[in-house]
């Protein structure tokens, strides 16, 4: 529900922010929008190449491993775990933002620590998955997986997989760095001195965006 605005409020007559949002937060939104076009371009390029190819590897065959389980056939299990970790860290991020609204510095610290841990867990999972695929012979320019119908696959599959999950992983990495900086600033009491926790909120927007992109990466690479 859009926020209730008093009737006759003239938002554009000057003297107030027309969107009732702080400048930095608005710019974060527009940055994220532009970033979504970057990811969108990647994923749509992936889609159009996939549509322009006769066969494609079966994701349930490629992504069937789980750490420390040896040769298993567990499609979707590991990536579900990764999805769960990312959603969970998104939740702790909102809780940190909510705590910031209540000027509860201790709670902000607590939830920011959890968020950073969630991000690191996700990155570890991704590192393992990349390592595992690489040990099976998959990398940029090499694709050991045949198409689902048994014909020889092109390297498009691995190229797109590593590029897009790598770009997303880099976003997660920078998100972890940003969240760590926010955590340190919060520990130093910077936000308390400033009187508001809007920086946590802006970092939170970025972090949720990373989660949002993962929702699409998950669907495009693992489900479809």
């Amino acid at each position: 529900m859009a926020q209730a605005i008093p009737a006759g409020q003239k938002w554009w007559s000057g003297g107030k922010s027309p969107f009732n949002v702080e400048y930095g937060k608005l710019m974060m939104w527009y940055f994220l929008m532009s970033d979504s076009f970057t990811f969108g371009a990647f994923l749509i390029s992936y889609g159009s190449i996939r549509f322009a190819t006769n066969g494609w590897p079966d994701p349930n065959h490629v992504f069937r491993a789980f750490p420390f389980m040896g040769e298993t056939n567990m499609p979707l299990v590991f990536v579900s775990l990764m999805t769960f970790i990312l959603i969970m860290s998104s939740v702790t991020m909102v809780l940190a933002v909510a705590a910031g609204h209540n000027h509860d510095r201790k709670k902000v610290t607590f939830y920011m620590i959890l968020t950073v841990i969630g991000g690191l867990m996700f990155l570890s999972c991704q590192a393992w998955e990349w390592w595992h695929l690489h040990s099976e012979g998959a990398w940029w320019g090499q694709n050991p997986f045949p198409n689902a119908d048994g014909s020889k696959a092109t390297t498009n599959f691995t190229n797109y997989f590593f590029t897009i999950t790598g770009f997303h992983g880099f976003h997660v990495f920078s998100g972890v760095v940003i969240n760590s900086i926010m955590l340190i600033k919060n520990l130093r009491g910077d936000f308390e001195k400033r009187g508001h926790y809007l920086m946590i909120e802006k970092a939170g927007l970025y972090w949720h965006f990373v989660d949002l992109v993962w929702v699409f990466v998950f669907t495009c690479f693992y489900l479809l």
Partner: peptide
């Protein structure tokens, strides 16, 4: 997937609670 995206944007990113004009610019 679109449903999930909606909930993340609307609730976690709090966009649903912003002013309508701003929602539209995004």
């Amino acid at each position: 997937t679109c449903a999930k995206a909606f909930y993340i944007i609307a609730e976690f990113m709090h966009l649903r609670h912003e002013i309508k004009n701003m929602i539209m610019t995004i």
